[in-house]
């Protein structure tokens, strides 16, 4: 492929004035055939949804059937009917709501704390170039550490309770917020600052009336990334040591070969994740509309 291209280009250069010939492309001598713009006909949305539902049902049915005839080992993979049964038990007799609330709380707290602290840290770099230069390398170092590798240490320090999960979620979200906010700070037009100072502004006025509103869209843009990171953080915290939470349920079910419970917990976790993502998207839209123009 590469050599072909090179030869093609070389020979074209050697020929000089002639247009470059692509090897393998035959040029018809006559006028080019009239061609129409290829347009894909758009399906109505009900048809799209129908196909999606059918595909889902098909996969589930195939799984169930394969488990029934023994093509899939139901001991390792479980089967849809069993998962459904476990799901109802999990919600009616099990700890579903305790676990959901536990994971949700840790995630939201870590998300809020990490985003807030990170944004404040990023904004603080505006105040002093020397301070920013001193702290920057440390932030980058912290960024490069796989924070999840520190999780066992965090559990040791903060204990088995909620605070350790919050701490891991915070560690994951903090750096992203800091770096994004600082990128926003650096993107502020220096002429804007000159304008403020020419009007006799104090540094605090420049910060409050120019820097903070200009950086806000940057901070908001990481919210959706951060909610996912915070969830990952709290789940990993629960994996390592916890008495509640969906992460702990998954680990426990896996260790006791209760595969259907693993699936149930993953399912609930995904739903929680989607719900939080949608919530944050709403928050983001609301913030953009009312705070940022």
């Amino acid at each position: 492929m590469m050599t072909e291209r090179t030869i093609g280009r070389l020979s074209a250069a050697a020929i000089g004035r002639q247009p470059p010939l692509r090897l393998g492309a035959r040029r018809p001598s006559g006028p080019p055939r009239a061609r129409r713009l290829p347009v894909e006909r758009q399906w109505p949305s009900w048809l799209i949804v129908l196909v999606q539902v059918l595909a889902f049902v098909l996969v589930i049915a195939a799984w169930e059937a394969a488990a029934y005839i023994g093509m899939v080992d139901a001991f390792f993979w479980s089967r849809p009917s069993q998962i459904w049964q476990t799901l109802t038990v999990f919600f009616t007799e099990g700890d579903a709501f305790v676990d959901i609330a536990y994971t949700f709380r840790a995630t939201i707290m870590g998300f809020a704390l990490g985003t807030l602290l990170g944004s404040l840290l990023g904004l603080s770099f505006w105040w002093s170039r020397n301070y920013a230069a001193i702290v920057q390398p440390f932030v980058i170092c912290f960024e490069s550490i796989p924070k999840l590798a520190l999780a066992p240490l965090i559990i040791l320090i903060f204990g088995m309770g909620l605070s350790s999960k919050v701490a891991i979620a915070t560690a994951l979200t903090l750096v992203v917020s800091t770096l994004t906010t600082y990128a926003g700070v650096r993107a502020v037009d220096p002429d804007g600052e000159r304008l403020f100072y020419s009007l006799g502004a104090t540094r605090w006025q420049v910060f409050r009336k120019l820097i903070v509103p200009a950086v806000l869209p940057w901070t908001i843009s990481v919210l959706r990334v951060n909610i996912g990171l915070a969830l990952t953080g709290s789940i990993v915290g629960e994996f390592i040591a916890s008495q509640h939470g969906l992460g702990r349920t998954i680990l426990y079910a896996g260790q006791t070969y209760e595969i259907s419970l693993v699936w149930v917990a993953v399912l609930v976790l995904s739903s929680l994740s989607i719900a939080m993502y949608v919530g944050v998207s709403w928050l983001e839209r609301w913030l953009r509309r009312d705070l940022v123009r």
């Binding site: 304008l195 020419s198 009007l199």
Partner: peptide
């Protein structure tokens, strides 16, 4: 600073403020 009014070639209006609130900035 603040002894003269200074206008640059760029208008530097703040996108999150209305025209009126931009004008009153000084």
């Amino acid at each position: 600073i603040g002894r003269v009014g200074y206008m640059l070639q760029k208008d530097l209006l703040l996108s999150w403020r209305t025209v009126l609130d931009n004008v009153i900035l000084g």
